[in-house]
Amino acid sequence: MNPLDYANYWIAMFLLVTGLFIVIARGNLVKKLVGLGIFQTSVYLLYIAPGKILGGTAPIIDPRFSVYSNPLPHVLILTAIVVGVATLALGLALVVRINEAYGSIEEDEVHALDLERD
């Protein structure tokens, strides 16, 4: 078994874990959303990489080529990217609202303010 055959998965795993770490460990809400973005892109890589065939080309039919990469993951990930930016926009709108209501976008401070209020 050649380790390079699995390198694409391991890169995706590393990025996924980094994104997960940012989402859990960092209290700043904007940073959390950036971490979520990294998490998402790692999934794109996980989907796209198996669709590649060595020696193949992009799935645009042309008489000069006969081997194409798999178009199905591309379609799924196109959808995922667009949905991802929609969730990012919604999350950022929530962050703006939280900042207006609490004057802070740090999770700890927001939590402390909530406790004070109760």
Binding site: T41, K52, T57, A58, I60, I77, L78, I81, L88, A89
Partner: peptide, 29 residues
Amino acid sequence: LDAVDVALTEAAVGAGISTVLLLGTLYLT
């Protein structure tokens, strides 16, 4: 990885729109 359509979308959406949204939020916070 031969995914040219996805790469185009990622460059436009990931690098373009997301950055604008994030910078807008930073401006407001």
